[in-house]
Write a protein that binds this DNA or RNA. Structure first.
Length: 479
RNA sequence: GGGCCGUUAGCUCAGUUGGCAGAGCACCGGAUUUUUAAUCCGGGAGUCGCAGGUUCGACUCCUGCACGGCCCA
């Protein structure tokens, strides 16, 4: 039957129910148990009366008896008999798969041992007008799963598990930081000037203020202002927005955790992150290892640590440190890396690194001491010109975040911004903007500080063994 | 931006060399008092992603477009 006819038929049943004086959309229903409690503690519930509710998933009718499964937090079988329900039994004829039903009845075990509620009374809680996907193939069409995630959640129970795990990741990290004396804050998403990352922004407009605003690409510069203001340890979970392509690892809006700790440097941050990931793995997986897309990952401290230029040296037998742009470019071409016209030295480093090194970092790896050209907010390394105190944690070839000893010298920071300005003039649209207000704040003095940003979606991918970022975002961006 | 693959009933999928549009589930009618992918009998359900082209004839071949996926940039 066509979809239209099926909807018509359900509306017909809706009318019939109303004619019989049944309200199809009542306001509430008192529960005494959840399906999961009944199933787990079945002995305690045996022969006890319960009130439960859920969405009808399947109906097996045998004349004067009917079995049905309803989906609460888990699904549970209910059993209706004409001899217990009398005339009311026939009302169930007007129920469809997808309807919400409330049930009063006694818990028992069927012949085959399945925990079941023998229905003594039932109530329509919400009439569904559209048919659900079929029961055992579920909903497979990837586009439909993303566009109509609510159906995906009903049809594919594993999806709910993924998002419970995502929730756990965030909760455990938040608890961890709270226990380590960090204070959670909220900073502006609408910013007059965007900064803190190398990316293009989304632009919007405030009518009353009559000015352009940007959706933040990072929280960094505001959190540092709070360090300047005297917060010793701060963090923020929030959405950042980057106006770039959409693929398996990128969604234009994504969740980031940023944290800053005063009097710390990037080595302290490395240890903090290692500890946090160990803790996360223990809490979620019950151990230090997990499988991600066929790779066995172990979070045990200390992680492998390798310097940016040493990693490149190992791969290419070429020392890229302190080389001129032309030297790096010709070496890249030698390595069959396509170099776009007008690329900057920093971008070139970035491409070579992600092509040659990042892919192969399967176990948790800390790559540190990045080229200063691509680290405009990180402190320069003492006695090592060209290198900044910056690291990235990489797992399964996935860049999970970014961390520095934060640059707190206002004069040096101004020079770095000015250098970014030159790159912008040469056409690099992702170069950082000079933020005069931030420089003013720095001029008041920022203590030595270590900080990090972590991509929460990617971490959720790893802990849920999801191949695509869209699997861990409830409503991912589609065209 | 480029390459490859996909789009057929509400869902999951077949569709042969270009020759009547198919199945299972779901749905509708009937039988059925412990089923669980219930079973049995009967039924109807389609803008074959969209727009062109080739052809006597297109789900099928060609071109363009849209949406999605993977890979590359």
């Amino acid at each position: 039957m066509s979809l239209e006819k099926q909807i018509e038929d359900r509306k017909r049943k809706l009318k019939e129910l109303k004619v019989k004086g049944i309200e199809p959309y009542p306001h509430k229903y008192e529960l005494t148990a959840r399906a999961s409690e009944i199933k787990q503690g079945s002995e305690d519930f045996q022969n006890k009366q319960v009130r439960i509710a859920g969405r009808v998933l399947s109906v097996r009718k045998h004349g004067k008896t009917t079995f049905s499964n309803i989906l609460d937090d888990v699904d549970i079988q209910i059993y209706l008999r004409k001899d217990t329900l009398g005339d009311k039994y026939d009302i169930f004829e007007l129920f469809d798969i997808g309807d919400f039903v409330g049930v009063v009845g006694k818990v028992f075990k069927t012949r085959t041992g399945e925990i079941t509620v023998l229905v003594e009374d039932f109530t329509l809680l919400s009439k569904s007008l559209r048919p659900l996907p079929e029961k055992w193939h579920g909903l497979k069409d990837i586009e439909a799963r993303y566009r109509q995630r609510y159906i995906d959640l009903i049809a594919n129970p594993v999806v709910k598990e993924t998002f419970f795990t995502r929730n756990n990741v965030i909760r455990i990290m938040r608890d961890f930081l709270n226990e380590h004396g960090f204070v959670e804050v909220e900073t502006p998403i609408l910013q007059p000037l965007y900064g803190g990352a190398t990316a293009r922004p989304f632009t919007t407009y405030h009518n009353v203020l009559n000015k352009e605003l940007y959706l933040r690409i990072a929280d960094e510069l505001y959190l540092k202002r709070l360090i300047i203001g005297g917060f010793n340890k701060v963090y923020e979970f929030g959405k950042d927005f980057r106006n770039e392509g959409v693929d398996r690892f990128h969604n234009p809006e994504f969740t980031q955790l940023e944290a800053y700790q005063s009097y710390a440097d990037y080595f302290d941050i490395m240890e903090l992150l290692e500890e946090m990931f160990e803790h996360l793995s223990l809490e979620i997986k019950g151990g230090l290892s997990l499988e991600y897309q066929g790779n066995e990952i172990n979070f045990k401290r200390p992680w492998k640590r390798i310097k940016f230029f040493d990693a490149l040296l190992q791969k290419t037998e070429c020392n890229f440190k302190n080389k001129s742009f032309d030297e790096i470019k010709s070496k890249a071409e030698e390595l069959n890396i396509v170099v776009d016209e007008g690329i900057t030295k920093g971008k070139l480093y970035d491409i070579i690194f992600s092509k040659l090194v990042q892919q192969d970092c399967i176990q948790p790896t800390i790559v540190y001491d990045y080229p200063v050209e691509i680290s405009p907010l990180a402190k320069r390394k003492e006695k090592e010109p060209g290198v900044a105190e910056r690291f990235e944690p990489i797992i399964c070839g996935l860049e999970l975040g970014n961390a520095f000893s934060e640059l707190n010298d206002p004069i040096e920071q101004r020079r770095r911004f000015e250098e970014q300005g030159r790159l912008r003039d040469l056409g690099d649209e992702e170069a950082h903007l000079l933020d005069e207000d931030f420089l003013t704040a720095l001029e008041y003095g920022m203590p030595p500080t270590g900080g990090f940003g972590l991509g929460i979606d990617r971490i959720a991918m790893i802990f849920t063994n999801s191949p695509s970022i869209r699997d861990v975002i409830l409503f991912p961006q589609l065209r």
